[in-house]
Design a binder for these strands. Structure first.
Lengths: 217, 217
DNA sequence: GTTAGCATGTAAGGAGTTACATGATTTT
DNA sequence: AAAATCATGTAACTCCTTACATGCTAAC
């Protein structure tokens, strides 16, 4: 009933903090920004939006905000544009600053990372290090369990185990590199060149209609 | 109510096919055999077992099977040992032979792979190839979406995307190696460089019993 | 003139988890 | 005698999906 999920709620607040949007677009951005990690359907998004409005974290702007013509002229069905309220912003910042174990478990880490641009450096460090030690712990258990059961397992199970461990080891290396980068300045190591410092504050413009963004399955 | 899950049900049938077990042990094996991929709690396992019994796929053996003393003598609380019935075996083989898209989606692929030892070679091939082309499709979408949105994304989102894509690419390579191995004989491919045919024995491991099997969270 | 995309929603249900409840037995 | 492990189970809840319902517009 309440629909106050963890990940979805967090992501919605985070995206709306960057700029107001309506549900349909939000869902597209959700499924590209968070990339591989999660995909959400309208069946969860719309109820979530309503719940967030009821809590006072979002406000609906019935039609196109301020400078836009009413729906009756554009023809399109009335969009409901959602925008983060002051309380919503405050709440999101609370969430951002949390560094409990929740922050680095599998379900949450991806979305936390996705909003690292909005996160303070020390929180980023704690989350990255928390994640890394969580994975190292897991790795130790896997090694122990493998040593115990190695000869009972068939080739495929063994191969699955091996590949799983390698994946975890790879993520640990990735985290180590990121932690190293954090310690000594900016993330670096992107595809493009270093962008010094763009806070990305108020941008009342919407980026671009972006014709076909088919993220549907 | 019915609790007839996908993954859990499959895994339970698969493990019980190898040998009868009681719930508690089953759960431990579930969480090590399937490794990183999933962890199940008693709250889902026990109802699932009951549902499988009701469908006639499992049978309960109230106490320790045939040659064992009754619970009143061993002291232990009566274990309920579950064993796969003939119908259950048949059903599991049906499941094993299915090669629909379900078999290679994220949620199912791991458990399907874990029981490749029980799966016929052509089914294995179809599942591996299905998985691979699913991932390649996903990769194409990610690349397209990245090309479209690259400059709007901040460094962290970009890095997340990049790492996600690399993970998928890595899994594709893994699958390709496995497919290649399948085509030309046995799985092979152990941990180190090419070991001709040693099922893993000599190793600087400590065979320590390690009494605490704490798979709990 | 039909497919594809835009846009919003609801009802029902699936697949699991957490927290609780119980109790015996082995280890420390 | 306390703590850990073995062992089984239930009720309530979470978070999300699927399938459905609606209707408009742009492009092929």
């Amino acid at each position: 009933m309440s629909r106050r999920s963890g990940v979805l709620e967090f992501a919605v607040l985070g995206l709306l903090r960057e700029s107001p949007m309506h549900g349909y677009e939000l869902r597209k951005r959700l499924n590209t920004s968070l990339g591989v990690f999660r995909a959400f359907s309208y069946g969860s998004l719309y109820p979530c939006l309503k719940a967030l409005v009821q809590r006072g974290w979002l406000a609906e702007e019935p039609s196109g905000g301020l400078g836009e013509p009413p729906a009756s002229l554009t023809g399109r069905r009335a969009k409901i544009v959602y925008r983060l309220t002051a309380e919503g912003k405050e709440h999101f910042e609370d969430l951002l600053s949390q560094t409990g174990p929740d922050a680095w478990e599998d379900e949450h880490f991806g979305v936390r990372f996705a909003f690292f641009g909005q996160t303070s450096r020390d929180v980023r460090m704690r989350v990255l290090e928390g994640r890394r030690s969580r994975l190292e712990e897991r790795l130790a258990k896997m090694r122990a369990s493998l040593a115990r059961t190695r000869d009972r397992l068939d080739d495929y199970t063994l191969e699955l185990q091996r590949h799983g461990m390698e994946s975890v080891e790879r993520e640990v290396r990735w985290l180590s590199e990121l932690i190293e980068s954090e310690r000594s300045g900016r993330p670096a190591r992107g595809t493009g060149p270093d962008r010094p410092e763009t806070p990305g504050q108020d941008r009342p413009d919407r980026p671009e209609p972006g014709p076909s963004d088919n993220t549907d399955r």
